[in-house]
């Protein structure tokens, strides 16, 4: 049959949700995504060249409606260096949620959040896409140069939720991603009849079943 590979997915009730991780080089984008999909930390990562993505299927219970939905999560990973932006911004438009990461031990990565937000608002599908700001490397307490209060304040001014996490220990990683899933699904459910994104059905019971609260 002439159907695309997407359509051939046997699940007929999943939402395909695409996220993109952004942030300066070396803040831990790849590690966060890897920790989320594989549940472990690999300290020997290489820098991301070009683009890549990881996938995970899960069942999500909406924090507001309590409705359960199958979600096929596609997590896109990008190179952090500014020079590669002309490549990576091409992927912004297909993205429903952005995981904007900075490194709590790196002042510059925090300062650059503003410029990432500008990039994002210019190239995303809409003016106010769903974003979560993540302060990574929370486990390296000794080396922190960005305080939680300062980060919260910045997030508040930018109008985005903020969470601290550690890709190394796994702390809060799932919570961050799921908070964003929740926000995106809420938005999607508000859009009635948006059947375009419907992909497939259920997820096997051993997949993660989680209910989430947004902080």
């Amino acid at each position: 049959m002439i159907t695309s590979a997407h359509e051939q997915l046997r699940h007929d009730h999943d939402y395909l949700v695409k996220f993109l991780a952004l942030g300066n080089s070396g803040v831990g984008k790849t590690s966060l995504l890897y920790q989320f999909t594989e549940g472990c930390f690999n300290s020997q990562f290489t820098s991301t060249v070009g683009i890549d993505f990881k996938e995970k299927r899960l069942v999500h219970r909406c924090s507001v409606t309590g409705r359960e939905q199958g979600v096929h999560l596609q997590l896109w990973d990008t190179a952090g260096q500014e020079k590669f932006r002309s490549l990576t911004t091409a992927f912004y438009r297909n993205t429903m949620g952005f995981i904007l990461v900075f490194d709590l031990t790196n002042e510059q990565s925090f300062l650059d959040i503003r410029s990432w937000m500008e990039q994002l608002r210019t190239h995303a599908y809409c003016e106010s896409p769903d974003i979560i700001l993540v302060g990574n490397k929370v486990d390296l307490t000794e080396q922190h140069v960005v305080s939680e209060a300062r980060a919260r304040d910045a997030a508040f001014k930018l109008g985005v939720p903020y969470m601290e996490a550690s890709a190394a220990t796994g702390f809060n990683v799932t919570a961050c991603v799921l908070a964003l899933v929740d926000a995106v699904l809420l938005r999607m459910n508000r859009v009635v009849d948006d059947t375009r994104l419907t992909l497939g059905k259920t997820v096997s019971p051993d997949d993660e079943v989680t209910s989430v609260c947004v902080c």
Binding site: S25, G26, Q44, F45, T46, S47, Q81, N106, Q108
Partner: peptide, 11 residues
């Protein structure tokens, strides 16, 4: 800073 980050994750 970029160099320091990258040499630590090269090969």
């Amino acid at each position: 800073s970029l160099i320091e980050k990258d040499v630590n994750r090269t090969d």
